[in-house]
Nucleic acid binder design. Sequence first.
DNA 1: GCCAACGTTGGC
DNA 2: GCCAACGTTGGC
Length: 222
Amino acid sequence: MPPNKKAKVRKETTSSDDSSDEGKASAFNKKKKAATPARKREKGSSDSPTYSHWLMKSEPESRFQNGIDLKFGIEDLKAQPEQTACWDGVRNYQARNFMRQMKVGQRAFFYHSNCKEPGVAGLMKIVKEAYVDHTQFDRKDPHYDAASNPGSPKWSMVDVQYQRMTRRFLPLSELKRYHLQHRDSGGPLKNLALFTKPRLSVQPLTAEEFDFILSLEDKKPL
DNA sequence: GCCAACGTTGGC
DNA sequence: GCCAACGTTGGC
């Protein structure tokens, strides 16, 4: 990655919400708008929880956009120099903001989306914190953003390094069964972003969520 | 600043 | 390939 070439990851895009830089119109803010102006920061603590675990989606099967294949599965990450790639192409404010919170050394699930078998395929590690996503200025890139200018880039990316495959593939369907179960009975996956914010391509997980999902690799499929 | 139309995501 | 959910855009 940094020294070598960057892999190209196609991140999922999705849309919306900002809150960090430009004052984009976050849907979030919009919703609560009127009510309490002071509300955004007051409690001092529960504002924005700090997360240390993540789930990042990418498509392992070929899909073409502007003649460019967006395919980037965990095997593709593994095949990169130093098994490292930049996670470029994220064009959603919420997802971008989560990437900006990422710290070196944190772990993330590599999630396969928009494919035969969606689910968690493996683990990776953040090896470089957020920096400018160069693909926003590249007219040839499927994620080119004509509205962004080099003076104030809109989009960021991080570098991730392959860590390992999960001992078994953890299908979305199974995670969903747990999610539904936990919603009724109370359990670690009751609020999992994968289901509560299904369109977000970069999602935070609590340590409990992360550990629970990881523990499934040694269990029989539900 | 509201909101309807539109576009995209992504599971199925 | 369908379609539900939801973010974004743009007219007013």
